[in-house]
Design a protein around this nucleic acid. Structure first.
Lengths: 205, 205
DNA sequence: ACCTGAACACCGTTCAAGT
DNA sequence: ACCTGAACACCGTTCAAGT
């Protein structure tokens, strides 16, 4: 077993550069916005030449797809944690899942926008669709648990999951643009709770 | 009274160029996406030099804000039509308002994305905020009408309007990315109806 | 295998100069 | 008042050349 630390910062064999480029892109996205995200800036931040990214991404669109995919995976991971934490209380799980989604949007506005933008080319990356599908499946699982517990009505769980996803996504978009701010100008979580409760009541039949 | 038609296509005095630039930008947005929208391309399509747009927009961000504002105004106009058509049936009005919002997103995906993107600089254009506010007020008015008719529960109409807006916006984003497609791959309006109904039931108390 | 540097056509923005 | 053309620093993408 050798210690590879000595070359980690300058060498990127075995796909290490791919992750470094996505991380660099995420940094730029969080500091600026998608217009400030250039392939050349990403390359510079990863300490490679401006042509190096083309070894790992066909073009800029595919780097953006990689960043979006990372977003779906991070979202799914957080949602899994919520599901684990509130597994015994499906009603709370539904509300907290919504809040988690919205919090992700407020923390990473440009990334969430990117995840639903027209810049990705969904058809060209099966792993992107897979990551988004995994995220949706977690919502479906949550709904199924709630149905079993008698908290929400019976019926197609995917239908109810779509309603929940749409509400959470809509609230996230409104929140990140400041449309859910309170008197102090800060995001007012209570406004999300009210909307999520409205939907929840409707899902109880 | 003179006939100015003869110079309309080549001259843009009195703000005519501003509208022409927004229209050209909209065309490009609908044909490509926000990455393909360059100021130089917009200027060329409006038959002016690449520096001419700076007479009407401080920079690219302000042109984007103008295009987004036009979107809010178009949305508000369509929503007013829905309200007029279903004024005597608040329950239908609520559902049709949602469908209209989603249809706008499916028809103008890049524009709707732009309207909620981080590229606009909301603080720098009061007319943009005004246009968005008008749109929201129409939803509030619809909720108030429904409350008067006893179709939805009493309480802060803005709270219920936010829930409806979030649901409609979330569904629009899901629809334009293909997450609400049926077996044939086309947008399945029924899936939106189901989600909108879920929320509506919850708003009935 | 993976990376580089030069090259090309394109950007956003500014500004002196024209009408 | 409004528009233009040249100029600058920056893009995305390609490709011959290097290790």
């Amino acid at each position: 077993m050798q210690e590879p630390d000595s070359q980690i910062s300058t060498s990127y064999h075995h796909g290490g550069l791919r992750d470094a480029l996505i991380a660099a892109g995420l940094d730029i996205l969080n500091e600026e916005n998608v217009m400030g995200l250039s392939l050349r800036k990403v390359a510079k931040r990863a300490n490679v030449s401006h042509a190096a990214p083309y070894r790992h991404f066909k073009d800029k669109q595919h780097l953006l797809a990689g960043i979006a995919e990372e977003g779906f995976r991070a979202l799914a991971q957080g949602m899994t944690a919520v599901l684990d934490a509130y597994g015994d209380n499906p009603r709370q799980a539904i509300l907290q899942m919504g809040h988690h989604y919205i919090a992700f949007g407020v923390a990473h506005p440009a990334q969430l926008s990117l995840m639903f933008s027209d810049l990705l080319g969904w058809g060209e990356s099966e792993s992107l669709g897979e990551a988004a599908g995994e995220t949706f499946e977690l919502v479906v699982r949550m709904i199924t648990l709630a149905q079993t517990a008698g908290v929400v009505k019976q019926g197609d769980p995917e239908q109810l999951a779509r309603a929940h996803w749409a509400m959470a996504h809509g609230l996230a978009m409104l929140a990140k643009e400041g449309f859910l701010s309170g008197e102090d100008g800060e995001y007012d979580q209570q406004k999300s709770t009210q909307a999520l409760e409205n939907l929840l009541v409707g899902m109880e039949e």
